[in-house]
Simulated assay, not measured.
Amino acid sequence: MFSIKAVVLAALLTLLVVDVDSSSGGGGGSSYNFDLSNASDLRKLYNSKVYEADRMKRSLDGMPFQLGPLSHSGVRVTLKDGTKWLVHKGGGFGQSSQTVVVAARHMSSDWNIKETKNFGGCKTVSDFVKAGGSDYSLIFDNCHMGAGRMWKQCD
């Protein structure tokens, strides 16, 4: 027979499996000068230096609240030209990597800044994607762990 704690833990883990894609809608970004369907522009974006970053968190899709790991994390980076990009990971997000980059203008208003840090150009967008990790695992390498590795760069 299952204890109440085991049932609650199973329910929480099930909720974490909820699709955590970045929802569209208002929010946080200026226009960008990259055509991401163009390999040259994509390369320019990935080689762009990051000058400032915001550690971001939002509730999981379909949940009205955040509670520790019952949330979604990412890092919004600001480039020299002022454009902002969200780097985050999740199951099924990308093809060759589960850590992806999206224009911050696609972020919903559910995202909240938890911390801001000056990176001063010490890392590129590509470095943030690499730090996020190519694989996703709910238990061993999730969005929170990936965002934490991104955040610790240049310490």
Results as ranks from 00 to 15, higher is better:
Lys89Trp: 04
Gly68Ala: 03
Lys44Glu: 10
Tyr46Leu: 15
Lys57Ala: 10
Asp61Arg: 00
Thr124Gly: 10
Thr116Arg: 12
Ile139Phe: 15
Ser30Val: 07
Tyr136Gln: 10
Gln95Ser: 11
Val100Glu: 09
Thr83Lys: 06
Thr78Pro: 01
Ala6Cys: 09
Leu36Glu: 11
Gly133Val: 09
Lys5Arg: 04
Lys114Cys: 12
Gly148Cys: 05
Lys114Pro: 01
Val17Gln: 09
Val125Lys: 07
Ala53Glu: 05
Gly133Gln: 03
Leu16Phe: 04
Ile113Phe: 08
Asp61Ile: 03
Leu13Asn: 14
Leu45Phe: 10
Ser23Asp: 01
Ala104Glu: 01
Ser40Lys: 07
Pro69Gln: 05
Trp111Ser: 00
Val125Cys: 14
Ala147Ile: 06
Asp19Phe: 11
Asn112Glu: 13
Pro64Lys: 09
Arg43Gly: 14
Ile4His: 03
Arg43Leu: 14
Arg76Met: 06
Ser30Met: 02
Ser30Cys: 08
Gly62Val: 09
Tyr32Val: 15
Thr124Pro: 13
Trp111Tyr: 05
Thr78Arg: 05
Tyr32Ser: 15
Ile4Asp: 09
Ser37Met: 13
Phe140His: 11
Cys154Asn: 04
Gly120Arg: 13
Lys84Glu: 04
Gly74Ala: 05
Val125Tyr: 06
Ser73Trp: 02
Arg43Asp: 15
Phe128Gly: 00
Arg55Lys: 15
Ile139Asn: 13
Leu36His: 10
Asp135Glu: 15
Gln66Ser: 15
Lys49Glu: 06
Met63Cys: 03
Gly121Ile: 08
Gly148Val: 01
Leu60Tyr: 02
Ser40Met: 10
Lys114Trp: 07
Lys123Cys: 12
Asp35Ala: 14
Glu52Met: 05
Ser30Asn: 05
Ser22Thr: 09
Leu79Ser: 00
Lys117Val: 14
Gly92Leu: 05
Trp85Glu: 08
Leu79Ala: 01
Ala103Tyr: 03
Gly146Arg: 02
Tyr136Trp: 11
Trp151Ile: 05
Leu67Ala: 07
Ser109Ile: 06
Ser108Trp: 01
Leu12Ala: 10
Gln153Leu: 15
Gly120His: 07
Asp54Phe: 05
Gly68Asn: 06
Phe34Asp: 09
Val7Arg: 06
Leu45Glu: 10
Leu70Gly: 00
Val20Cys: 07
Val125Thr: 12
Leu16Asn: 07
Met1His: 12
Asn47Thr: 14
Ser97Tyr: 12
Gly121Ser: 11
Thr14Lys: 11
Ala131Val: 02
Asp155Gly: 11
Gly26Met: 08
Ser137Leu: 08
Gln66Ile: 10
Lys49His: 12
Asn112Gly: 13
Gly62Arg: 12
Val129Asp: 00
Met56Trp: 04
Phe65Tyr: 14
Ser37Ala: 12
Ser22Gln: 05
Met145Phe: 11
Lys152His: 12
Met1Lys: 08
Gly26Trp: 07
Gly146Glu: 02
Tyr51Gly: 13
Ser3Glu: 12
Ala104Arg: 01
Arg43Ile: 14
Phe119Arg: 01
Asn112Asp: 15
Asp81Gly: 09
Ala104His: 02
Asn38Glu: 14
Met1Leu: 04
Cys154Thr: 05
Asp155Ser: 13
Val101Arg: 02
Met63Lys: 00
Phe2Val: 06
